[in-house]
Write a protein that binds this DNA or RNA. Structure first.
Lengths: 172, 172
DNA sequence: AGAAAGTAGTCAGTGCACTGATTAACTCCG
DNA sequence: CGGAGTTAATCAGTGCACTGACTACTTTCT
């Protein structure tokens, strides 16, 4: 007894959503290139010569995962990996011609796939859906870095409610 | 050039959502038991003695993945795996006492975690959010099995347009 | 009864994802 | 200049997820 309804658990639904997406991706976009791999190609299309860590940041892949994804793409000849002459720790990444071609080809297909994926929702619902996911993900991401470590800029300008103590600390 | 904005791609956002969820899960619920593992414990709490494949179906894990998850849980002594005496292909699964205890303990924590996870949204938005994810996932799932293979029951009672041929099949 | 078809589970192979430990290179500061 | 701290990348280990091939058992049909 006392079992829970998983369909009310956002985590479970998030996993199912990704599985559903994976299904559509492999059938409608590509069986070779995965969605995260496309993300890397896309990031390097926007900003060629980016270093590996930053690409991972753009795409949402941690340092270990980006290393694997990049090594697969480079093994397939879709990108080049060169030591940064100005900083011997970094690798600079750049698409090969084939990498650029692949990105162009898949861009069309991903657009179609996204349409099909979101087709069950109305146009307004689609926009709302994406916004809600972003809001939830971004909020959780905030929790990663403890407040104390963040710079004032990241926290924005706090126009909001301030207690007297903050404004005139510990005073009398 | 011609790069795309990944934040408009539901697949990318789905992946990020799951990462965000994973972060909260490991910090707020458990570092040992994962979310899919909890799903299995939950399914067996609701229906003890279920066979492995059906558990996988309930939780949304394919036959390979459920096998791994189950073997981990059984290795940790959270469930028992017994051959079905009535069908030598099947394994029947049942929680051990410790498995049941673990499920109870984690249920409380997952509820708290879900609250925090969805906190950035209003109550109405939360309900809507879950519904939208379900609608998109379910629709994509439909595409897995081609229409031709599905039984009439699965397709529901079609009140809609029917061709004369269907109503009076191929007759003369 | 016996062959054919179907089903439950395993196994091998690939890929994403996270943590913690390690290495190499750079930066900062005394 | 030189040591301390920081940063980029790798590596080892664990876990989820999918496909396709295979085994073993059951059901179905002839």
């Amino acid at each position: 007894m006392a079992a829970v309804d998983l369909t009310t658990h956002p985590g479970h639904l998030a996993r199912r959503l990704q599985q559903a997406h994976h299904l559509l991706w492999t059938t409608m976009v590509s069986e070779e290139i995965t969605s995260p791999q496309f993300g890397v190609l896309n990031a390097l299309t926007a900003e060629p010569g980016l270093d590996q860590r930053t690409v991972g940041e753009r795409v949402g892949l941690d340092r270990s995962t980006i290393a694997e994804v990049v090594s697969r793409l480079s093994r397939r000849g879709l990108l080049d990996k060169v030591r940064d002459p100005d900083d011997g720790r970094r690798f600079l990444l750049r698409l090969t011609d084939e990498g650029a071609r692949t990105h162009r080809r898949l861009t069309v297909r991903t657009a179609r796939m996204n349409q099909v994926f979101l087709a069950p929702l109305s146009a307004e619902e689609q926009a709302l859906f994406l916004t809600l996911i972003r809001r939830v993900s971004d909020a959780a991401e905030e929790l990663r870095t403890p407040e104390e470590l963040r710079t004032p800029e990241e926290l924005g300008t706090p126009e909001g409610p301030r207690t007297p103590e903050e404004t005139a600390p510990a005073g009398r």
